[in-house]
């Protein structure tokens, strides 16, 4: 029913929302790299402060951003606990068979925890402030150099846009088909293996048939609009590389230098 919601894009008009998507994706990739470089409380502190600052600039609530961590919480917890109990180095607080809790283990677990959270926050800030289609065209621009080795970059861009456009349509159709089969007596979460397979087939076949039909019609619509693969096209969506974008990239590079210099502090 919520046709607009895909991914977790929250439309807005902050400086971060308005950034060139190519610059934004590049900056995000750089910051994630710095997160992997960081190794102590000082540079992690700096990166946390940076994430908070970004959230402020994006005019988002910290709570909203932190919510995105929820689906990953078990994975994070699992990794953290493994780190704590199986770390062999450092002075031991407690030991029982192979399990040993050490000061080093706790420290490492803390760093891994913060690393996980920071990476998720960076990815979330990108997807919350950038529409899926802008991400698609940002990726298209980033992979543009591959054109020279024969990769059909524009075609990939159109393919991604169309795929994103049809996700909500197909989701809605899947819901209706599921409802229709339920009313024909299908109980999706019960029955033996063969029964379950048949139930799933009653969803897969219709959605495949429907995808082909959409594709067929869409091909006509593309043709009628004069689209031909690998022909030069102009772009209606204008992304200008603004001062904000340059400043952001410079700031992110300085942040990286700071993070790397601080590695020696531990």
């Amino acid at each position: 029913m919520n046709k607009a919601i895909f991914g977790n894009y929250l439309p807005g008009n902050s400086n971060i929302h308005r950034m060139n998507p190519t610059a934004k994706i590049l900056a995000t990739l750089l910051v994630i790299t710095w997160i992997l470089f960081a190794n102590n409380i000082w540079n992690y502190g700096l990166l946390v402060a940076f994430a908070v600052f970004e959230t402020y600039l994006a005019q988002l609530k910290l709570k909203t951003v932190l919510k995105a961590i929820k689906p990953f919480i078990w994975l994070i917890m699992f990794t953290v606990v493994i780190q704590i109990i199986f770390s062999p180095h450092g002075s031991s607080y407690f030991s029982w068979g192979p399990i040993k809790i050490t000061n080093y283990g706790i420290q490492l677990a803390g760093l891994i925890f913060i690393r996980f959270v920071l990476i998720i926050i960076q990815a979330t800030l990108l997807t919350m402030t950038t529409s899926p289609n802008s991400i698609a065209s940002g990726v298209e621009k980033l992979i543009a150099p591959l054109r020279y080795v024969g990769v059909p970059v524009e075609t990939i861009g159109i393919m991604i846009s169309i795929a994103l456009r049809f996700v909500p349509t197909l989701m809605e159709e899947l819901q209706v088909i599921m409802d229709a089969q339920r009313l024909r007596g299908v109980m999706f979460n019960s029955g033996g293996f063969i029964k379950r397979c048949k139930n799933i087939i009653s969803l897969i076949i219709p959605i495949l048939v429907s995808s082909f039909r959409h594709a067929d019609n869409l091909a006509d619509a593309l043709g009628a609009s004069g689209y031909e693969a690998n022909q030069p096209r102009s772009s209606y969506r204008q992304y200008h590389w603004n001062l904000t974008d340059s400043i952001t990239i410079i700031a992110v590079i300085l942040l990286g230098i700071a993070v790397i210099l601080m590695r020696t502090l531990s």
Partner: peptide, 15 residues
Amino acid sequence: SKVGMIFQSPENQLF
């Protein structure tokens, strides 16, 4: 089993 429903474009449920 007693309340049937025919959706818009019901042919979409054939499989």
